[in-house]
Design a protein around this nucleic acid. Structure first.
Lengths: 130, 130
DNA sequence: CCTTTGTTCTATAACTTATAGATCAAGAGC
DNA sequence: GCTCTTGATCTATAAGTTATAGAACAAAGG
């Protein structure tokens, strides 16, 4: 798994890490059961503090995306969307979609972009499609 | 225009205000040329500081969504999406869409949700559809 | 004139982010 | 058994963000 962080970005480092793990899971690059690097290793690789990585992993655990165990380390969990998540997600999507439309993108363009992004997730790295 | 703010929310007040104006513009509820309430009026209505409202308006101005003038007040600008915006928006959409997929929603469900939200924007409050 | 409006300064308290160091507890392997 | 690796959990500190507050300025209108 290839992770990149941008120290100059306005988005917090722990959030960048979380986002990239989320994208890797959606991508299929990180399948259920696969392991993430140990906190300290990842921190050393990026030259950042291990507490920052810990915060990202803790966030992913709270979201139910990974399981954390001593020695087993961080492992990608089985995904099961609960109804409250769907409602919350839709509210956030509404805000993001509204921004695109308000800035002058047409609904068709926006939907095409979404479809294209979703296709890029569905098509790659799936090992359960023989 | 009906604005609601949640003081208990984790999302900053100025961001909530910005998001709701963005949604109102996407909705057509706020058409090009229509006026937003004066900073101090809005602040008084919500019982919050006028600097907080000023920050939201300033953000909207920087995004090119409204124009600010002394005495003319805050007016919704003509929308014209520049290419850098589209690229930036797609990157943010990728993160949000990835979250839905990673949490177990199917690509079809997600796309249907997006379509439904976009339809809700396109269908309401348009006075340029005779 | 005086009011209304956005704009711009300073200041402060509370919270968030990132860093740092120390320690604990569970499991693996020698 | 001992040690190493691992996540988990405390304290602490510096820098940045958020929200509040008060004051004052500049332009346009009545």
């Amino acid at each position: 798994m290839i992770l990149n962080i941008d120290l100059a970005s306005a988005v917090p480092i722990y959030q960048q890490l979380r986002d990239q793990v989320v994208e890797a899971i959606a991508d299929g690059e990180l399948a259920e059961g696969s392991s993430l690097p140990p906190i300290r290793t990842l921190a050393a690789d990026f030259g950042i503090n291990f507490h920052t990585v810990n915060k990202a992993y803790d966030l992913l655990r709270k979201e139910g995306l990974i399981r954390l165990n001593r020695k087993t380390g961080a492992v990608v969990a089985a995904s099961a969307a609960d109804p409250p998540f769907a409602a919350d997600w839709t509210a956030r999507a509404r805000t993001l979609l509204a921004e695109a439309v308000a800035r002058g993108l047409s609904a068709d363009e926006v939907l095409a972009t979404c479809r294209s992004v979703l296709d890029s997730f569905a098509s790659t790295h799936r090992e359960d499609t023989p």
